[in-house]
Nucleic acid binder design. Structure first.
Length: 125
DNA sequence: CGCATGACGAGCA
DNA sequence: CTGCTCGCCATGC
């Protein structure tokens, strides 16, 4: 059958991407954090860090996503110091024993490192 | 059409 | 550490 190359094609539409992203984010274990780029990579969207940020800013009402475990690759929270969002994120992180100083987390100590099983199985579902 | 803007990131000076 | 450039791409003007 013929499938017009426009509008369709490319197996992933926006919805699929959002789903993949939220799936990855919700796999980050409590007490660990991941960067936007890391989430993008694990979601099969290399180089799409900004897309991850966009998704986390458009979480459907009611859906539960561990958005607070995602921050910049350099360890800084993605929000301005003392902003409402930064304060809330800091509180949520400290509740799971993730240390936040000066709007920043030490990635060396808290960055999530998925084990092989997670990479081969859990991330595929 | 170009141009600016994002919950971003890596490289370089 | 700071600042600048370029890559990324959806959106809006």
């Amino acid at each position: 059958m013929k499938m017009s190359s426009d509008s369709v094609s490319e197996g992933k539409n926006a919805t699929d991407k959002h789903g993949a992203i939220w799936h990855v984010v919700n796999m980050i274990p409590p007490g660990s954090v991941a960067s936007y780029g890391q989430v993008a990579d694990l979601a099969g969207l290399p180089g799409r860090a900004r897309l991850v940020g966009k998704c986390l800013g458009n979480i459907p009402d009611g859906m539960q996503v561990a958005w607070h475990r995602v921050l910049r690759s350099n360890g800084y929270l993605a929000f301005p110091v003392n902003s409402e969002q930064a304060l809330r994120q800091t509180a949520l992180l400290q509740e799971e024993n993730v240390a936040v100083f000066n709007n920043k987390v030490k990635m060396r100590d808290f960055q999530w490192e998925p084990d092989l099983y997670t990479l081969l199985y859990d991330l595929e579902k």
